[in-house]
Design a protein around this nucleic acid. Structure first.
Length: 136
DNA sequence: CGATTTTGACCTGCGC
DNA sequence: GCGCAGGTCAAAATCG
Protein backbone atom coordinates (compact mmCIF):
# COMPACT_ATOMS: atom_id res chain seq x y z
CA UNK A 1 0.00 0.00 0.00
CA UNK A 2 1.93 2.92 -1.19
CA UNK A 3 1.64 5.92 1.04
CA UNK A 4 -0.09 8.88 -0.50
CA UNK A 5 2.70 11.20 0.48
CA UNK A 6 5.01 9.87 -2.16
CA UNK A 7 2.52 10.58 -4.89
CA UNK A 8 3.08 14.31 -4.75
CA UNK A 9 6.71 14.08 -5.77
CA UNK A 10 7.82 17.25 -7.45
CA UNK A 11 5.50 20.09 -6.65
CA UNK A 12 7.12 23.52 -6.67
CA UNK A 13 4.85 24.94 -4.01
CA UNK A 14 1.87 24.97 -6.33
CA UNK A 15 3.29 27.46 -8.75
CA UNK A 16 1.87 25.64 -11.70
CA UNK A 17 -1.63 26.75 -10.84
CA UNK A 18 -1.11 30.34 -11.88
CA UNK A 19 0.85 29.88 -15.05
CA UNK A 20 -2.11 30.17 -17.38
CA UNK A 21 -3.76 33.24 -15.97
CA UNK A 22 -3.50 36.97 -16.47
CA UNK A 23 -0.37 37.29 -18.59
CA UNK A 24 -0.83 41.02 -18.89
CA UNK A 25 -2.38 41.77 -15.54
CA UNK A 26 1.00 42.13 -13.88
CA UNK A 27 2.58 44.20 -16.62
CA UNK A 28 0.03 46.94 -16.44
CA UNK A 29 0.35 47.18 -12.70
CA UNK A 30 3.97 46.82 -11.83
CA UNK A 31 3.70 49.17 -8.94
CA UNK A 32 5.33 48.53 -5.60
CA UNK A 33 2.87 45.77 -5.02
CA UNK A 34 2.13 46.83 -1.50
CA UNK A 35 -1.21 48.55 -1.26
CA UNK A 36 -2.55 47.93 -4.75
CA UNK A 37 -2.17 44.20 -4.47
CA UNK A 38 -5.85 43.38 -4.73
CA UNK A 39 -7.43 46.36 -6.31
CA UNK A 40 -9.15 44.74 -9.25
CA UNK A 41 -8.17 41.14 -9.60
CA UNK A 42 -10.52 39.21 -11.85
CA UNK A 43 -13.32 41.54 -12.74
CA UNK A 44 -14.90 38.93 -14.91
CA UNK A 45 -17.01 37.45 -12.21
CA UNK A 46 -20.73 36.98 -12.68
CA UNK A 47 -23.02 35.33 -10.19
CA UNK A 48 -26.24 33.80 -11.43
CA UNK A 49 -28.85 32.79 -8.97
CA UNK A 50 -31.07 30.22 -10.56
CA UNK A 51 -33.99 28.21 -9.31
CA UNK A 52 -33.25 24.68 -10.39
CA UNK A 53 -33.16 21.18 -8.97
CA UNK A 54 -29.92 20.21 -10.65
CA UNK A 55 -26.60 21.91 -10.21
CA UNK A 56 -25.51 21.31 -13.75
CA UNK A 57 -27.13 24.11 -15.72
CA UNK A 58 -26.46 23.61 -19.38
CA UNK A 59 -25.60 27.03 -20.71
CA UNK A 60 -24.40 25.64 -24.01
CA UNK A 61 -20.79 24.98 -23.06
CA UNK A 62 -18.92 21.88 -22.00
CA UNK A 63 -17.99 21.82 -18.32
CA UNK A 64 -15.52 19.49 -16.68
CA UNK A 65 -15.71 19.14 -12.94
CA UNK A 66 -12.33 19.55 -11.26
CA UNK A 67 -13.17 19.58 -7.61
CA UNK A 68 -15.75 19.60 -4.90
CA UNK A 69 -15.47 21.14 -1.47
CA UNK A 70 -17.88 21.81 1.31
CA UNK A 71 -18.17 25.33 2.64
CA UNK A 72 -18.90 26.19 6.23
CA UNK A 73 -21.73 28.57 5.56
CA UNK A 74 -23.53 26.04 3.46
CA UNK A 75 -24.65 22.60 4.32
CA UNK A 76 -24.19 21.44 0.78
CA UNK A 77 -20.79 21.11 -0.88
CA UNK A 78 -19.69 23.49 -3.60
CA UNK A 79 -18.81 22.17 -7.04
CA UNK A 80 -16.04 23.57 -9.21
CA UNK A 81 -16.26 23.30 -12.98
CA UNK A 82 -13.94 24.35 -15.77
CA UNK A 83 -14.61 24.90 -19.45
CA UNK A 84 -13.46 21.90 -21.45
CA UNK A 85 -12.03 23.57 -24.50
CA UNK A 86 -8.69 24.03 -26.18
CA UNK A 87 -7.40 27.24 -24.71
CA UNK A 88 -10.58 28.14 -22.92
CA UNK A 89 -9.86 28.82 -19.27
CA UNK A 90 -13.27 29.81 -18.06
CA UNK A 91 -14.21 28.66 -14.61
CA UNK A 92 -17.62 28.03 -13.16
CA UNK A 93 -18.59 27.70 -9.56
CA UNK A 94 -21.81 26.14 -8.42
CA UNK A 95 -23.18 26.36 -4.96
CA UNK A 96 -26.50 25.46 -3.48
CA UNK A 97 -28.08 27.46 -0.71
CA UNK A 98 -28.57 25.53 2.47
CA UNK A 99 -31.57 27.67 3.23
CA UNK A 100 -33.24 26.83 -0.05
CA UNK A 101 -32.04 23.74 -1.77
CA UNK A 102 -34.07 24.80 -4.77
CA UNK A 103 -31.81 27.79 -5.29
CA UNK A 104 -28.55 27.24 -7.10
CA UNK A 105 -25.91 29.93 -7.34
CA UNK A 106 -23.75 29.69 -10.42
CA UNK A 107 -20.69 31.91 -10.49
CA UNK A 108 -18.89 32.36 -13.81
CA UNK A 109 -15.28 33.48 -13.92
CA UNK A 110 -13.54 34.51 -17.11
CA UNK A 111 -14.69 34.98 -20.68
CA UNK A 112 -15.34 32.37 -23.34
CA UNK A 113 -13.31 32.60 -26.52
CA UNK A 114 -15.22 30.09 -28.59
CA UNK A 115 -18.72 29.64 -29.98
CA UNK A 116 -21.38 27.64 -28.24
CA UNK A 117 -21.56 23.99 -29.17
CA UNK A 118 -24.88 23.24 -27.69
CA UNK A 119 -27.78 25.48 -28.60
CA UNK A 120 -29.78 26.65 -25.61
CA UNK A 121 -33.03 24.79 -25.68
CA UNK A 122 -35.00 25.84 -22.67
CA UNK A 123 -32.29 28.04 -21.31
CA UNK A 124 -34.41 31.05 -21.99
CA UNK A 125 -37.01 29.57 -19.75
CA UNK A 126 -34.49 29.33 -16.96
CA UNK A 127 -33.45 32.91 -17.41
CA UNK A 128 -36.99 33.82 -16.71
CA UNK A 129 -36.40 32.95 -13.10
CA UNK A 130 -32.74 33.78 -13.01
CA UNK A 131 -31.29 36.74 -11.19
CA UNK A 132 -27.93 38.17 -12.08
CA UNK A 133 -25.68 39.51 -9.38
CA UNK A 134 -22.57 41.48 -10.25
CA UNK A 135 -20.28 41.89 -7.25
CA UNK A 136 -18.21 44.34 -9.29
C1' DC B 1 -9.81 4.35 -26.30
C1' DG B 2 -10.82 8.88 -24.79
C1' DA B 3 -13.03 11.98 -22.04
C1' DT B 4 -15.02 12.82 -17.84
C1' DT B 5 -15.99 12.09 -13.09
C1' DT B 6 -14.85 11.19 -8.13
C1' DT B 7 -12.21 11.39 -3.87
C1' DG B 8 -8.21 12.70 -1.31
C1' DA B 9 -4.40 15.38 -0.38
C1' DC B 10 -1.99 19.67 -0.52
C1' DC B 11 -1.28 24.66 -0.89
C1' DT B 12 -2.31 29.57 -0.15
C1' DG B 13 -4.33 33.50 2.23
C1' DC B 14 -6.22 35.63 6.14
C1' DG B 15 -7.35 36.12 11.03
C1' DC B 16 -6.20 36.18 15.70
C1' DG C 1 3.16 31.57 14.50
C1' DC C 2 -0.68 28.62 14.06
C1' DG C 3 -5.35 27.43 12.62
C1' DC C 4 -9.18 27.69 9.59
C1' DA C 5 -11.38 28.24 5.16
C1' DG C 6 -11.26 27.96 0.56
C1' DG C 7 -9.36 26.49 -3.79
C1' DT C 8 -6.75 23.43 -7.09
C1' DC C 9 -4.58 19.31 -8.91
C1' DA C 10 -3.64 14.40 -9.39
C1' DA C 11 -4.69 9.47 -9.97
C1' DA C 12 -8.02 6.09 -10.54
C1' DA C 13 -12.52 4.53 -11.97
C1' DT C 14 -16.37 4.78 -15.12
C1' DC C 15 -19.16 5.69 -19.25
C1' DG C 16 -20.01 6.21 -24.28
Amino acid sequence: MQVHQKSKEIRPSGISSLDCETPVAKTSCECKGEKNKKMMMRSHRYAFQTRSQVDILDDGYRWRKYGQKAVKNNKFPRSYYRCAHKGCKVKKQIQRLSKDEGIVVTTYEGMHAHPVEKPPDNFDNILNHMRVYTPF
